[in-house]
Amino acid sequence: MRKGEAAALKWSDIELKNKTVVVKKTLDFDFPEAHEELFGDTKNDNSERILQLSNTVVADLKHHMNVIDQNKLILNEMYRHDLNLVMCRTDGRLIPKSTLFNAFSRILKRAKLPSLPIHSLRHTHAVLLLEAGATMKYVQERLGHGGIQITADVYAHISKKIEMNSIKKYESFTESLLQ
């Protein structure tokens, strides 16, 4: 997801039993005063989508939900129940963009990884999907790109592993023609 899409996720957008999440809004990180203006439309029509979640993500979300529920119990009416956000501060309020970016930077630093923009998670996910054999069309739909050309332009050339797998498939196919 894009950072605004992830930040706009509400618990009502997630179906843990079906392992899906509905992406339908984006968060305006400028935090306008009016509550209804916090969430806007996604980047394009294709950005509204239903994503399948892995078992690992579902387990992490269940754990996170337990933490959120504990915060709700402890803070009671001081908790922002009305927002119902998945990614939020301890009291349920919105996470500012700078806090999100700083937390990501700290995680990278602790893991002794180079500094990267948070959007690199989205790119890494796309490359790993392609390396695992996902089609370009599937990746386009999962990322919510307006068209497959956008996905192809960004990701088609990015991985040597994809290139090597393609050559191996080609060689295997042409060898089978000669038998």
Rank of each mutant, 00 (worst) to 15 (best):
H35F: 12
L16R: 07
K43N: 13
L128A: 10
R106K: 14
T99W: 09
F173V: 02
K17L: 11
V23M: 03
R2Q: 11
V67A: 02
R49C: 07
T135E: 15
R122V: 03
L143G: 01
I148D: 02
K97Q: 08
K25Y: 09
N66G: 11
K109H: 12
D45P: 00
N102W: 04
A8K: 01
L75M: 12
K43W: 12
I158P: 01
S159A: 14
S166I: 06
D45Y: 03
L113F: 08
F31D: 09
A59D: 10
L178P: 01
Y79W: 09
M136L: 14
R110P: 00
D30Q: 10
S98M: 03
D153R: 07
I158Y: 08
V23K: 00
L177N: 08
F31K: 11
L100K: 01
S172K: 14
A34Q: 11
D28N: 15
T90G: 05
I148P: 00
L16G: 02
K10F: 02
L100C: 06
N165K: 15
D60G: 04
T124F: 06
Y138Q: 15
R110L: 09
D69F: 03
F39K: 10
L85D: 01
D69C: 02
A6R: 05
L177R: 12
S159Q: 12
M1K: 07
K25P: 00
E131Y: 10
L108W: 08
F104E: 07
T174N: 13
A126F: 11
R2G: 04
K97F: 06
W11E: 14
N71V: 00
D28K: 09
L113I: 10
Y170N: 09
L130M: 13
Q149F: 12
A8H: 00
A152T: 10
K160F: 15
L9K: 01
L128M: 14
M87G: 00
V22P: 00
L53A: 06
I107H: 08
A6T: 06
A126M: 12
T174S: 12
V58T: 08
N102C: 02
L108Q: 13
L16K: 05
